[in-house]
Each structure stands twice: as C-alpha cells, then as structure tokens.
Design a protein around this nucleic acid. Sequence first.
DNA 1: CACCCGATCGTCT
DNA 2: GACGATCGGGTGC
Length: 300
Amino acid sequence: MGGGLTAAVPPEWVPGPRPSGALSGLPSGGWPAAGPVPPGPVPSGPPLPRDFFARPAQEVAPALLGCVLRHETPDGAVAVMVTEVEAYAGAADAASHAFRGRTARTAVMFGEPGHAYVYFTYGMHFCVNLVCLPEGTASAVLLRAGRVAEGAAVAAERRYATGGGPAGKGGPAGKGGPAAERASAGEAGSAAGRLAGARERELARGPARLCQALGIDRGLDGADVCDPDSPLRISGPARAVTAAGIHRGPRVGVSRAAEIPWRFWIAGDPTVSAYRAHVPRRAAAKAVSAPATDGGTIHR
DNA sequence: CACCCGATCGTCT
DNA sequence: GACGATCGGGTGC
C-alpha cells in the first residue's frame, strides 16, 4: 500500500562527502581508517558549527556517525562516539513526534538547529535527538547508540548502580571497580576481560541506555550542543567514517512509516543495537467479570 | 539466541 | 483511556 508518506520521502540517500577537517574541527593529521572502532579514548574537538544541522535530518544523520557527544556533570565527563542514528523528518514523516504539529513536548524540535530534543518515554526512559533544519521547521536525528570513549567508570555507575543503594556498599562495580577501564587495556583474552568488554559494549547500546550513560534527562531538553560552553556538546568525527562504512535500514520500533530506511549505523560496530520491528502492545486484559464483591457489598 | 512479558507514566485522542 | 522512537529478566529451543 503506497502509504501516504511515500510521496513526501526524498530520493534515496546518496553517500556524500564527509565534513571537511575545517568544518568538523579535526586536526589535519589523519585518524585511523574506517571500520569497526576499537575501544578506548577518542579525541574531542570544538563543537560542530550550527550550519552542520541546518539541513534535512536524513542528510545530517549519516554525517553524525563518528562524531563525539560529551556531557560534563559534577560526577565527571562522559563522552560517546556516535555509532547509530535515525532521522525523523517532522511534518513529512508519520513516525516523527512533530508529525501532528507543535506541542509543548516537541517545541524544541521547531526551534533553532543544533539543540537537543530530549523526550521521556515508556514511563521510565529518556531519548535524545539533535534538531535539524532552520528554525520554524521540525526535524531531528535520534542518537540510538554510541561507544563510550571517556568516563566509562562514571557511565557504568549510572547504568548499573543498584538504584539508590544505601544498603549496597561499593556500588555496581563491586570488586575491582570500573572493569570497563581495564577492558581496553590488555585483558581482552581473559574471561574477566570478555565480561568487562561485553558490559562496556552495552553501556550506550540503545537510545535510552545512551542517555543513561551520559546522564541525560529532560532537564537538557533544549540544550545547545553547538555552544562550546554548554555542558552537553558535540564535536566532529573522531574517526573517519566513509560512505562505504555506513549501512542503512528501517528505523527501530516505529509503528508508522516503518519501511522508510532512515536508520544509519557504522557497519560492523558491536555497539549498534539490534533491529526490532514495532510490536503493538496487547491491550491490558480488563476484567470481563468484575472481581466478586465481598458479600455483595460494593465498595468504593 | 529468539521470543515473551511486565514495568511505568507523560502525552495525545 | 490507550499508546509508545525501550529495557531487562525469564523461558524455551
């Protein structure tokens, strides 16, 4: 079925040139070539210019792969290299929160590009987008996954801390502390090393996990990621990601426009989340026959 | 590893 | 009043 969105969908995305060194703030020296990204710290330069975001989301999305999102808090700084994103084209996209027009929740998406649109979902999770297109037109790129490149210990604390564990003493790290820090060192072969590596890979694998690792919540809705003084900011590619190293496919878990391939990821990277089609939630089983009232007396 | 299910609440119909 | 741009734990192969 054609699906109303079809007509509004732009032509196939054509791999275009990556941002130049000048645009991205990269030093002229080369970073490692494309391919799965090895664990460990990555450089973090000046923020991307606002113009970078003043384009359609489906164009910005692949260009964000390899860029570094960093959040500074009193707990310390955590940075992730973006490995997976999804474009949401506002009014032209039935899957976008902005499809039905501007509301209090989606207001930021209609504002200046280069700001964070943070939303709360499923009663417990936050997800972060970066706003695209000029002010007045809504569109955004959802950051779905990343590799923690700085502050792995802080990220692990946020992800695995036993909720407000006053009872628990040491916290999640338990023995040995931040295993993630060791993982990148030299224990890749050992059982402990594999465990630490597996956990490190899961730190920011998925949009809500990424937000949790970075400590992002609704308080950062509207934050300017292009402002060098912002606690939340994004810098240019820490690593060259060529068009050949980028794969694309349908977006994860969307109930509408599910066939549009606006999800982009770094091919072969272990931190990319798994694809899952939308699953309509079974309606809560409502009691067909009212629970027996005791003694026929109706309470309430 | 694939599939199923419960949690939990802001947002929009 | 229903539905998520999700996650983690449990079951079963």
